[in-house]
C-alpha cells in the first residue's frame, strides 16, 4: 500500500538519544505508526514487521497503531530507520526532505536491524 511518511521527534526517542546502540533505542525508533484501519487493510497487527520502501531505499520496522494519524499517513520517529528511506537532495537549501516522503509498505518476514548494524552496513554498500 502507498503512504506519505512523516518523521519527527518523540519523547522516547529523546530519552534514548545517548544509547543508540541499545535495544531500547530500537524499540523507540524502529517503529512505524499507522492508522488502525490501514493496518487492517494491510493485514498486520501491533508489533508485526513491515518493509517500508521509497525511491531512496528500504527498511524493516515494527508497525504500531495510532488513532491520531489520518489514513494514508505513517509516522516513523527521527533516526536511522526513518533516514534509510529519506531521499537524497536538499532542494538547494541544505535541508533534506524528512517529511512528506512517498513510501510503499508491505508485510515482511525479515528481521529489524539494530541502529549500529544499520549504519555499519553502509561502510560496505557501494
Amino acid at each position: 500500500m502507498e503512504f506519505i511518511l512523516i518523521s519527527g521527534r518523540t519523547m522516547h526517542q529523546g530519552e534514548t538519544l545517548h544509547q543508540k546502540c541499545s535495544e531500547e533505542y530500537m524499540k523507540a525508533c524502529a517503529i512505524c505508526e499507522m492508522n488502525p484501519e490501514d493496518m487492517k487493510e494491510l493485514g498486520v497487527k501491533d508489533g508485526d514487521v513491515v518493509r517500508v520502501k521509497s525511491e531512496a531505499g528500504e527498511v524493516n520496522v515494527y508497525v504500531k497503531p495510532c488513532e491520531g494519524l489520518d489514513r494514508g499517513i505513517v509516522f516513523i520517529p527521527m533516526g536511522p530507520w526513518a533516514n534509510a528511506v529519506v531521499p537524497a537532495g536538499t532542494d538547494s537549501t541544505g535541508m533534506p526532505s524528512f517529511k512528506g516522503i512517498k513510501v510503499r509498505i508491505e508485510k515482511a518476514d525479515g528481521r529489524v536491524l539494530r541502529g549500529d548494524e544499520l549504519v555499519r552496513r553502509y561502510e560496505f554498500e557501494g
Binding site: K20, A56, G57, M78, G79, P80, N83, A84, V85, V86, P87, A88, P96, F98, G115, V119, Y122, E125
Partner: peptide
Amino acid sequence: AAHFPRESVR
C-alpha cells in the same frame, strides 16, 4: 549517522 539521510551516511 543517526540523523542524516542514507545517501549522506553511506
